[in-house]
Design a protein around this nucleic acid. Structure first.
Length: 715
DNA sequence: TGAATCCAT
């Protein structure tokens, strides 16, 4: 059976593919080098998805949207794009895209597929992630792995995504912000491009919902009008025995530790993975296990090795969890949610699940994000348990009752789009020509209040006009910038302030996390202070960066000496150079040398330093004016400047806000009267901490944002 | 006066 691909003149034929197989098999006998060729192709056929190859291709002929329910280990991500390529979907210069929620996934999967196809990565098979385009500039790339956010951005350049014949939205059940928006955008594109095909790869739970979202069939009785189909593919997973607590625990940390020792003393070999919510808990569990392990009779039980893993941990320490332990010893990895989907630790036979996770949620009333410990969803619980069944039969110990799982946990987590700051996304939708964003077809709509808040901010940044239309050229330029709108505005305005070089550095530095290694230690604080200035964190970061490229010669040794995270600095360097390229292009300049600086090229202050820091901080105010605060009378905290706005000019939904200086800020022990800040994080204890803070003069708010702080005498 | 789930552009 041959398949016809809409819009193609050269359908692939099974004859060709049979010939390929023959030649491969024939060559095998000649050399060991080619032997690996056969094993790779044999390996491909062993994957569960291979059995569904014909069916997948058939469905794609007949349905615009195929929802693929595929469990872990089915091989869908690496194989389906290859099947499409082999059967002609990439003929005529067209491309098959496969989106991933994470950068690492996009790069590693592309690497693997390039190996399977015996091509160089970046040619027939490539990937695109932010700031890294590993595809063929000559247009030879046929299979493209990319982050979901990148595909969304590509729609800005080409609203019909015309080069793609098939787009596979992988891991759609994770419901990331960009996957969700892409679904709405693709639904619109499908109306104009009947030749386009979409594969939505999802977990069992929401397959019907995805299909219903894309369905254009208004007549459920007439199946011939269906444009969507659902297909299930088995995974390669071993069964996992799930155990619940008989009674709820009041202390899951202690219960987790006890369960570790129960497993260790009663169960056969196999490493243990423990899910906790954050660094503090992880360190506590790890040190308790280490301590109690010393009391076990050494000749009776194997050695037990407890290791932490979380995103903020330095890379070298993270790597330890992937190393095999000595024979006979048992590894206990205590992890945050990184181990649920982002990181796979080999050799896990047992999972202990606290049932909790920290999630970030945006509060439109205060414009702040909070970080709170929440009960996980049933889908998360199953995903966590599944981590025990990757090598052989496993066991999962859930530190909650079956009743709690069935009655208290929601089936799936709240989609990201319902708990995010939507300003950047709304701006990009406007740039895509979607004027009425409130009526955009979302798979799950965000709360109306979050949309209003986003529109209000964009209006105050002058990216939207009185009618809610994108302003030209400013709003359009801002939308094209791959940054948060407030940060984007300071870069676009930096030319007028004469400090573009400095703002590029600052924007890059606030975009990476954990510049200081182990920032809470006294030694790290001391190093931090060496770069510190009273103007605040932004200029301190500028000093760190300048020292890194001049005195530090971009070396890892210098970083180690100053307790600075080398990986973070390298990333900042790369982000900066990309932002620089964008800024040069957006401003219509010929090269980076045309971008003004208020300091010397090497970061030393050749001009009046005071004048320079004023320029930089004023420029920050031009983008961050909505995030300003004034010190409280008792000097212990700050009050959001929104409080100082006249009633009529206050945010639609406004509540007065106390803000605290984050202990990692260089201004922690200082009392600047007025500040602006990059972000606020509200912790579980209900305290809102400002991060990346700079001292400002209140007059600047009136001068640079008169439309925002209307006639305010209090400033 | 004291603190960091995790991604993405």
């Amino acid at each position: 059976m041959a398949f016809w691909k809409p819009g193609t003149v050269a359908p692939g034929s099974l004859v060709d593919r049979e010939a390929e197989k023959d030649s491969e098999a024939a060559i095998v006998t000649f050399s060991d080098a080619k032997y690996s060729t056969m094993t790779m192709s044999e390996q491909r056929k062993q994957l569960p998805v291979y059995k569904h190859r014909t069916e997948i291709l058939y469905l794609l002929e007949n349905y615009q949207v195929v929802v693929l329910v595929g469990q872990t280990g089915s091989g869908k991500t690496t194989q389906i794009p290859q099947y499409l390529h082999e059967s002609g979907w990439t003929a005529g210069g067209r491309v098959v895209a496969c989106t991933q929620p994470r950068r690492v996934a996009a790069t590693t999967v592309a690497q693997r597929v390039a190996e399977e196809m015996h091509v160089n990565l970046g040619m027939e098979v490539g990937y695109t992630i932010r700031f890294e385009d590993c595809t063929d500039p000559g247009g030879k790339t046929r299979i493209k792995y990319m982050t979901d956010g990148m595909l969304f951005r590509e729609a800005l350049m080409d609203p019909l995504l015309s080069q793609y014949s098939v787009i596979m939205l992988d891991e759609a059940h994770e419901r990331t912000l960009y996957t969700d928006i892409l679904m709405g955008v693709l639904k619109k594109i499908l109306k104009k491009r009947p030749d386009l095909r979409i594969i939505v790869s999802s977990a069992t739970l929401d397959a019907e919902a995805f299909a219903a979202f894309f369905s254009t069939n208004r007549d459920p009785k007439d199946k011939s009008k269906d444009n969507t189909a659902i297909l299930s593919v088995q995974g390669r997973m071993y069964p996992v025995d799930v155990h619940y607590l008989a009674e709820p625990t009041s202390n899951y940390i202690e219960t987790a530790i006890q369960t570790v020792f129960d497993i260790h003393t009663k169960e056969p070999a196999g490493d243990i993975l423990v899910f906790m919510t954050g660094r503090d808990e992880i360190e506590e569990v790890v040190s308790e296990i280490r301590e109690r392990a010393t009391t076990l009779p050494p000749n009776k039980y194997a050695e037990i090795l407890a290791l932490p893993i979380y995103a903020g941990l330095p890379t070298e320490e993270q790597m330890l969890v992937f190393e095999p332990v000595e024979k006979g010893a048992r590894k206990v990895v205590v992890a945050t949610n990184v181990a649920e989907a982002s990181v796979t630790i080999p050799g896990i036979g047992f999972v202990i699940d606290s049932g909790f996770v920290k999630i970030r949620a945006y509060n439109p009333q205060t414009g702040m994000e909070s970080l709170t410990t929440t009960t996980i969803s049933q889908a998360s619980a199953d995903q966590r348990s599944g981590r025990a069944g990757r090598i052989r039969n496993g066991k999962a110990y859930r530190l909650y009752t079956r009743e709690s799982f069935e009655q208290e946990m929601r089936p799936a987590s709240v989609p990201e789009i319902q708990r995010s700051n939507l300003a950047g996304m709304v701006l990009q939708l406007k740039a895509l020509g979607i004027e009425n964003v409130l009526r955009f077809d979302f798979m799950t709509s965000p709360p109306a209040e979050m949309m209003s808040k986003a529109l209000e901010l964009l209006y105050s940044l002058k990216a939207l006009d009185n009618y809610g239309r994108l302003t030209i050229p400013f709003g359009m330029r801002l939308a094209e910038f791959p940054l948060d709108p407030m940060l984007g505005k300071i870069l676009l305005d930096s030319q007028a302030f004469g400090c573009s070089q400095e703002m590029l550095t600052i924007a890059a530095m606030v975009s990476v996390q954990n510049i200081f290694v182990n920032a809470t230690s006294p030694a790290a604080e001391e190093q931090h202070r060496r770069f510190g200035v009273l103007e605040g964190d932004h200029i301190t970061l500028l000093n760190v960066y300048a020292a890194f490229i001049t005195r530090g010669k971009k070396s890892s040794k210098w970083c180690a000496n100053h307790l600075i995270n080398f990986k973070a600095m390298s990333r900042a360097l790369s982000i900066r150079s990309h932002l620089e390229r964008y800024l040069v292009k957006t401003l219509g300049l010929t090269g980076p040398s045309q971008l003004p600086s208020c300091l010397g090229a090497d970061g030393s202050r050749v001009n009046d330093p005071n004048e320079a820091t004023v320029k930089i901080r004023k420029c920050l105010v031009s983008g961050y004016f909505a995030q300003a605060a004034k010190i409280a009378p008792d000097g212990t905290h700050w009050i959001s400047a929104l409080e100082a706005r006249p009633k009529g000019a206050r945010a639609l939904s406004y509540s007065p806000t106390k803000l605290w200086m984050h202990p990692t800020s260089i201004l922690f022990k200082q009392t600047p009267q007025w500040v602006i800040f990059h972000e606020v994080v509200e912790t579980g204890k209900g305290k809102a901490y400002m991060r990346e803070v700079s001292a400002i003069e209140p007059e600047w708010l009136g001068e640079l944002a008169p439309h925002f702080y209307v006639l305010n005498k209090q400033l």
